[in-house]
Design a protein around this nucleic acid. Structure first.
Lengths: 154, 154
DNA sequence: CCTTGACCTTCCCACGATGGGAAGCCCCAT
DNA sequence: ATGGGGCTTCCCATCGTGGGAAGGTCAAGG
């Protein structure tokens, strides 16, 4: 099987297949006399395994661990689970960060009337470094009004 | 004020300050005769504005828009709000993606006994391309057992 | 005055994972 | 034999950030 076929049946782009080989995530593919890479059905399975792990958001290094465990008949499922839970934990951290950002911005946007007037709590918050209480952003008390004049940069 | 002071008081690294200048997000800083960059308090405010926007997860190009709006006294708060809500929408999309990954992996990890035995639903799912029903992963029915022998890659 | 150390400058490289594209070779079908 | 599509390698770009080298500058203390 050529790389194009392997790509089509695994769902991994040819570019990525070469890259995975390059970084040692995939074993070196066999070659035809002309230098074309040759893939077996087992290779395609590995590629699919990798793609699936990528779909779960795993970084290459974690996938590398999982692949070696996968190929190790004497593995402990506990090791696999530990890696999986580690990733779950990182995902949760990331989700929490994004959620915090999202909520902060939603609160700001909610407080913004969003009409033709220039007056805007979002900009004010950005300007003030988010120091104000998120609730009741109404009272904008002109923090450092002298210096923070936009446009006075030069 | 030198770049070190500007960095310390704005919370943006000197490296990033130079980068922002380079890509035109910050105006070109003034220079001393020796070539040192010189910053004003207004510059530091801009830097803080940018940092705060970055903290909300915004990409540079969106921040660029926001900064120009911020410095435009004739802006409409509606424009600002639109940009903010656009970002909220992207954050929500990202959160949904991560949540889906997280839940999938949690389900798999839950089904894994996690002991010394090699038997592992996580690996089986990765191998099978996530085709099985997520609930009741208990029945692992040896999908394609002939081909998918790990380790048979070469 | 000279040295020392902290600061500044520019330039290059790296990350992680992916895509784009160019130059050139190969294979198959017509 | 010729054309088109597939393959090869190599380089570059993304995005935002950090690291580090080589060299200039400034301020303080001997």
């Amino acid at each position: 099987m050529n790389i194009g076929q392997a790509s089509a049946t695994s769902g991994v782009s040819a570019k990525m297949i070469r890259y995975y080989e390059d970084i040692g995530l995939m074993p070196k593919a066999g070659r035809t006399e002309a230098g074309y890479r040759v893939y077996t059905a087992a290779d395609v399975n590995t590629l699919r395994f990798i793609r699936r792990a990528r779909d779960l958001g795993m970084p290459i290094e974690r996938i590398r661990l999982l692949v070696s465990l996968w190929q190790d008949r004497a593995r402990s499922s506990g090791d696999v689970k530990r890696i999986a839970l580690e990733h779950v934990s990182e995902l949760r951290t990331k989700i929490a960060e994004l959620t915090a950002m999202c909520e902060a911005l939603e609160g700001l946007a909610h407080a913004c009337h969003g009409d033709h007037r220039p007056d805007c709590p979002i900009l004010e918050d950005l300007e003030a470094g988010g120091q104000q209480a998120p609730a009741r952003v109404r009272r904008r008390r002109r923090i450092d009004a002298g210096q923070s004049q936009p446009g006075a940069t030069a």
